[in-house]
């Protein structure tokens, strides 16, 4: 069973995405802030990481850098409300594999997850 790390400080979105991903057969680990996420990345191996950019304690960019350093094969998807060109370019520049802006459709996110996790 593939494991996904979901990092999001919006607790409702976190729980909802967990419910959706679990229903699709993924094992989901949750982090509600950057500090927890960095600890999780340090302690565990994941098949995919989904992260927001604006997080307490550590930003999504720091987390992506950490993931790419410790688990370079693990793909990363950014899910952010920032539509700015700079954020998107920076995200890809530091190693993210995909970028989705909020609001989004769960089916779109699931398609992107499937594509990355099964490559």
């Amino acid at each position: 069973m593939k494991t996904i790390l979901l990092i999001e400080n919006d607790l409702l979105l976190l729980k909802t995405m967990e419910a959706i991903l679990s229903a699709k057969g993924y094992r989901v680990s949750l982090s509600k802030d950057g500090k927890e996420a960095l600890q999780q990345v340090h302690d565990n191996q994941f098949d995919l990481v989904i992260t927001d950019l604006m997080l307490p304690y550590a930003s999504g960019m720091e987390i992506i850098e950490k993931v790419k350093e410790q688990q370079p094969q693990t793909p990363v998807i950014i899910v952010s409300s920032s539509h700015s060109e700079e954020s998107i370019i920076e995200g890809f520049h530091i190693g993210a594999d995909d970028y989705i802006t909020k609001p989004f459709t769960p089916s779109e996110l699931l398609s992107r997850i499937n594509r990355l996790i099964n490559r």
């Binding site: 919006d10 609001p103 459709t105 769960p106």
Partner: peptide, 11 residues
């Protein structure tokens, strides 16, 4: 709250 997070058919 969900309406601000999700679009398309979910919205």
């Amino acid at each position: 709250h969900y309406k601000t997070l999700f679009s398309g058919s979910v919205g």
